[in-house]
């Protein structure tokens, strides 16, 4: 029986402006690659932020590896890549190696010390993601695509079982975006890492993800992309033409 990585039951989240998520019940199993799509303001980012304990849950439950999100502490099992580090100071003086090394803190106890073995782990991860040549560069000096690769290395360096990506390609050009999606698909396939990808790009979800989660504050669809494309409910919701466009695989 497949292992449950994420389970939500009637999950609700609210901001001052009102409800952003209502009655979300989904189960993500080990090895799944789930693309989370939906229009702006549909609660995609709120869902992953709630799972990570970064925003409060107003009702229902959310479990990470069987533990309620508010009490979850095994952060070594989770990797997270945010949309982009908008607030990253361009003169921030950390090198790529220093930045990626911070991902290993989730495996350490206080006081967190990075050893020679840790530095080798960082080097291997940089090599694997093709950014070893940037090791001594300052993170603020890199292009958007390079920064995202380095932050992905940071998210993967602790060998997580679950990788959560929140619109990681928003600032990338189409070519870099496609390379990035292929990389994530490889990580899911070859390492068996469960992936939750928040994106606007339903085409990319169709091409790479094993499951699609369509949100618009409520859960509109959760299943495989094939089921989505054949679903009469989705035809009724989007219209056949729109559904056809969304299901068009590149």
């Amino acid at each position: 029986m497949p292992r449950e990585i994420v389970r939500t039951e009637n999950l609700c989240c609210s901001y001052r402006t009102g409800r952003v998520l209502e009655d979300i019940s989904v189960t993500v199993e080990a090895g799944d690659y789930v693309g989370i799509v939906g229009p702006n303001g549909s609660g995609k980012s709120t869902l992953v932020r709630a799972l990570l304990g970064l925003c409060a849950i107003s009702d229902g439950t959310a479990l990470l590896f069987g533990v309620p999100c508010g009490r979850f502490g095994e952060w070594g099992r989770v990797g997270y890549l945010p949309q982009s580090l908008d607030q990253l100071n361009p003169v921030f003086p950390a090198t790529v190696a220093e930045t990626v090394g911070l991902g290993l803190l989730s495996l350490k106890r206080f006081p967190c010390r990075l050893t020679g073995v840790d530095r080798n782990t960082v080097d291997s991860m940089l090599e694997e993601l093709g950014v070893y040549h940037l090791k001594h560069k300052l993170i603020g000096e890199l292009s958007g695509g390079q920064q995202q690769r380095v932050l992905l290395a940071r998210a993967l360096v602790n060998e997580p079982e679950l990788l959560i990506l929140d619109e990681p390609t928003a600032a990338l050009d189409p070519e870099t975006r496609e390379r990035f999606y292929r990389l994530i698909a490889d990580i899911n396939r070859n390492r068996g890492v469960t992936v939750l990808l928040v994106t606007h790009d339903s085409g990319a979800v169709g091409q790479h993800a094993s499951k699609m989660l369509y949100l618009d504050k409520r859960l509109l669809f959760f299943g495989s992309f094939e089921q989505f494309c054949l679903s009469p409910e989705m035809s009724a919701l989007f219209g056949e033409h729109s559904q056809h466009l969304m299901c068009h695989r590149h």
């Binding site: 990570l52 304990g53 970064l54 502490g73 952060w75 070594g76 989770v78 997270y80 945010p82 580090l85 607030q87 990253l88 921030f92 950390a94 220093e98 930045t99 090394g101 911070l102 991902g103 803190l105 989730s106 206080f110 006081p111 967190c112 010390r113 990075l114 940071r154």
Partner: peptide, 20 residues
């Protein structure tokens, strides 16, 4: 003692929190 934690929080507080 807190060098790495201080660096992590200075780099990005949310990422630091998700690193435990």
């Amino acid at each position: 003692l807190f060098y790495n934690e201080l660096l992590a929080v200075t780099f990005n507080e949310e990422l630091a929190r998700i690193s435990g």
